[in-house]
Design a binder for these strands. Structure first.
Length: 494
DNA sequence: TGAAATGTTGGGGCG
DNA sequence: ACGCCCCAACATTTC
């Protein structure tokens, strides 16, 4: 960045916040905050082909923007909230403010990249600097390549190649002080109060419980990371699979909105091992960082294959005989499949905007294999209901489970909901907290209430088919039907 | 980052 | 004492 020869008479810089709602380790902000700057966020529901953010994400976004606004103000800056087609807004603002440069951190979704390219070209044509930075990933997708120079389609070689590039650069500090430039008047669409975006639910306030279990914003993200590394990272390799305990970092929505960046996570995690004051072992931390690796891999795949959310990565899956079954889909989304671990997961998602990763695999496998419903229906539901819904992770993970993805789970891997429940929620505590009608069933039967002796159900106040559903499909027959359906596809080589 | 079926082994009960 | 069966417990393969 031309720092030294900055023309003092030139106009302000603009920093355009997107998926990077933080002050620290934010290269675009640091570059723009060199002098007077305008910090903006644009809610763009208008540009064609841009995927409209889901409901749960919008709730999160509201609070994250509120937090960012406060944090900027504390440094002397100001966050301008805008709404509309970003291309016209950025160009219009840059002209009205007589800006000298516009900075942003890169996005990796195809439509978003296209938008950024168009804006960059127009800004440059207008004689401005338009500079993109990396805040979202440890390594740019195009930097990690195989020996032959091609994209890597299997996780392990990908992650090896990425790590072989050496440690990522250390995170940047937050700017010490920010000078807010004067907001030009007479903009076609001027700054709005945050509430005017209407990001929060109104009619039924379905976000009530979400308010109690999340702290959106940079401070909440840092707190989550520190809590995790200090107290919960020990034994991560095992504990991460247990939905009944707080064994994961719960950083996903913070990473999604860039309230914390992967370089900060990487640096803090490595430091906690090397300094010896973290509780976790080298193995635990490597396992944790490999989850960051999966996030990188998802973005790598999305970059190589932009249609990741809508098209099978393996074309042979185009012939898959998916079923239309609105009733089964509804039972799945509402957590009424009759399989307690599946229903608990779907209700955790609905109530908290998040689901434990192990349970995500179980419910996804159930939708795609037992119900034979297209993975895209699941992807769409998750997109709307997850606070961490991300174009890369959500699509890559669904394709992974369906078997249609890169380095995907083999088609014959069908999760058995009862066994998974018994293995990873052994006392049934997770089920009890999200399927309260089963609370009175003892651990022996909590994952298969239909097998419990009648007196036990009576004592627990359960009448199957009334207070809790019968399984909507028998596991064994669902499994066989799924295997037959997958068998009908042409082999991988074709 | 499965599950189920099938195969193998080895200890103990028992005729 | 010996072989036989049963069946965990583990290992392998098949889907």
């Amino acid at each position: 960045m031309p720092k030294d020869n900055k023309d003092e008479t030139a106009g302000p810089s603009i920093v355009w916040f997107r998926n990077d709602l933080r002050l620290a380790d934010n290269p675009a902000l640091s570059a723009a905050a060199d002098g007077p700057c305008l910090a903006i966020y644009i809610l763009d529901d208008e540009t064609p082909r841009l995927r409209r953010m889901g409901s749960a994400s919008r709730w999160w976004l509201h609070h994250s923007l509120a937090s960012l606004g406060k944090d900027l103000k504390a440094k002397g800056g100001e966050l301008l909230i805008l709404r509309g087609a970003a291309e016209e807004i950025v160009l219009g603002l840059a002209a009205a403010a007589n800006a000298s440069s516009v900075h942003w951190n890169r996005r990796y979704d195809e439509a978003e990249r296209g938008q950024d390219e168009r804006i960059k070209a127009r800004l440059k044509a207008a004689g401005l600097q338009a500079v993109s930075h990396n805040a979202h990933l440890l390594y740019e997708p195009w930097e990690v390549v195989g020996k032959s120079g091609g994209p890597l389609k299997v996780f392990s070689p990908f992650w090896r190649a990425a790590q072989a590039k050496g440690p990522p650069p250390p995170p940047l500090p937050a700017p010490g002080k920010i000078v807010a430039a004067r907001v030009p008047s007479g903009l076609a669409s001027g700054p709005l109060p945050l509430d005017a975006l209407g990001l929060r639910p109104t009619k039924p306030n379905w976000a009530a419980e979400m308010e109690t279990c999340w702290t959106p914003g940079e401070a909440g993200a840092q707190e989550a990371l520190v809590d995790f590394l200090d107290a919960r990272a020990r034994g991560y390799g095992e504990r991460r699979n247990r939905p009944d305990i707080e064994g994961t970092s719960r950083l996903s929505p913070h990473l999604r909105f860039g309230e914390i960046g992967p370089r900060q996570v990487w640096s803090a995690a490595r430091h906690s091992v090397e300094s010896g004051d973290g509780s976790a072992s080298e193995t635990d931390i490597d396992k944790f960082l490999s989850e960051i690796g999966w996030r990188e891999f998802s973005h790598h795949l999305l970059f190589q294959f932009p249609a990741l959310a809508t098209k099978n990565f393996q074309p042979r899956f185009d012939a898959f005989p998916w079923r239309e079954d609105p009733e089964a889909l509804e039972a799945w989304t509402r957590g009424r499949t009759g399989f307690p671990i599946v229903d608990a997961g779907m209700r955790q998602l609905w109530r908290t905007g998040w689901m434990h990763n192990r349970v995500r695999m179980i419910v996804a496998s159930f939708l795609v294999k037992h119900l034979l419903i297209d993975w895209r229906r699941g992807e769409e539901w998750f997109w709307d209901t997850l606070v961490d819904a991300c174009p890369a992770n959500n699509a890559a993970s669904w394709q992974w489970v369906a078997g249609s993805g890169a380095d995907a789970a083999p088609y014959f891997r069908v999760f058995a909901p009862v066994l998974q429940g018994e293995k990873f929620d052994p006392n049934g505590d997770y089920v009890r907290s999200y399927v309260p009608e089963l609370a009175g069933i003892p651990a022996t039967y909590i994952h298969k209430p239909w097998e419990s002796p009648h007196p036990i159900r009576a004592r627990a106040g359960i009448t199957l088919g009334e207070t809790y559903p019968f399984p909507i499909i028998k596991h064994e027959s669902g499994r066989e039907r799924a295997l037959a359906a997958f068998q009908s596809l042409s082999p991988e080589s074709a």
